[in-house]
């Protein structure tokens, strides 16, 4: 198990390198001279040339790439053109906001999705099963932005139950330590703020978590149905085990093997959805960060922002692979 983990981590290096290269080339493929774009139409030729030199854009692409890579190895993500400060210094609060939102969304999706799937399979063809499958069908086909706007319209504006935007109450802002506000407020013992943070998380969390929830519910159900037909489940029942244990112990552990892959995939996709959700709910996350960078043509931020999100995606996949091996003893390490 340990050596397997080491090997999987080792495999990360070429993946990350390749990814960095692709992101790097993608940014370079955007037409137009960044220096020109930054300085505007009225800029003098001299000024443009100076900035081009300053940015190192006069160098051949491979020199630029090696330079960028060298910086990455030292934890240098480059310099924001807009704020003139190192990206590595300013990116974490945004990243933390996205991580917190995504974790809440995937947690909602997994807890509700897996249990709904299990109970649906257990009571196959019952009204509960039909209801779950109908809701799941609606859930997978619901566009995030539409769901987000509906939530805001009804829950926030019409019924005035939950806030529309932001991470915390502006009248009592959270004092950031880790920038994961749920943790920060608890560390500070500010329970009132904690409740506020939870309130702010609910709507975007649901908007972001609905599609994965529906997909996880359907996958869990079909995986459970298949497992529950198997011979070893008959053996478990023949021992006199209660149906609850047959379902939640013997079936679930087997059924989770394919479900975990789906959960990992959905968590990755969630990052894409998070960017959309952040725009709707004014969430100061990495999506907002990159979006703003695109608006102001802040190329280093776009490049490093995408790279950070992609790395997160790869890390999630790594985690899933290791989890997979931990559950299934048949996987050869």
């Amino acid at each position: 198990m340990f050596s397997y983990t080491i090997r999987r981590v080792g495999l990360l290096i070429p993946v990350l390198l390749g990814m960095t290269f692709i992101v790097f080339m993608m940014i370079r493929a955007i037409p137009g001279n960044p220096a020109q774009l930054i300085l505007g139409q009225q800029a003098s030729k001299d000024a443009i040339e100076t900035l081009t030199k300053q940015l190192g854009l006069d160098q051949p692409w491979y020199t630029q790439f090696v330079h960028y890579l060298g910086g990455l190895f030292q934890g240098d993500l480059g310099m924001s053109l807009k704020t003139r400060s190192p990206i590595s210094d300013e990116i974490w609060p945004y990243l933390a906001a996205t991580i917190e939102l995504s974790l809440v969304a995937i947690l909602i999706a997994v807890i509700i999705g897996v249990n709904a799937g299990i109970i649906s399979a257990w009571f196959q063809n019952s009204w509960f099963d039909y209801a779950v499958m109908l809701i799941a069908l609606i859930g997978v086909s619901m566009p995030i932005f539409w769901l987000g706007l509906m939530e805001q319209y009804f829950v926030s504006i019409k019924w005035d139950l939950l806030p529309t935007t932001g991470r915390d109450n502006i009248r009592m802002p959270v004092e950031a330590i880790t920038h994961l506000y749920l943790i920060d407020t608890l560390m500070e013992g500010r329970f009132d703020q904690f409740i506020e943070v939870v309130k702010h998380l609910i709507l975007p969390g649901i908007a972001l978590g609905t599609i994965p929830m529906a997909i996880i519910a359907r996958m869990t159900r079909s995986s459970m149905l298949e497992v529950m037909r198997s011979d070893y489940i008959r053996t478990a029942r023949a021992k006199g085990l209660k149906m609850f244990w047959v379902v939640y112990k013997h079936s679930l552990k087997n059924a989770m093997i394919p479900v975990i892959t789906v959960i990992g995939l959905q968590t990755g996709l969630l990052l894409g959805g998070a960017i959309l959700t952040e725009t709707i709910f004014g969430w100061p996350g990495i999506g907002t960060y990159i979006y703003d960078a695109i608006q102001s043509r802040d190329y280093p931020v776009i490049q490093s922002g995408i790279l950070v999100v992609a790395t997160l995606f790869v890390l999630i996949n790594l985690f899933v692979d290791i989890l997979y091996a931990a559950i299934d003893p048949r996987i050869k390490y």
Partner: peptide, 12 residues
């Protein structure tokens, strides 16, 4: 049962 290969739970 008839099928010893599949009658034991693979993950326990």
């Amino acid at each position: 049962f008839q099928e010893p290969m599949t009658s034991l739970n693979p993950v326990f």
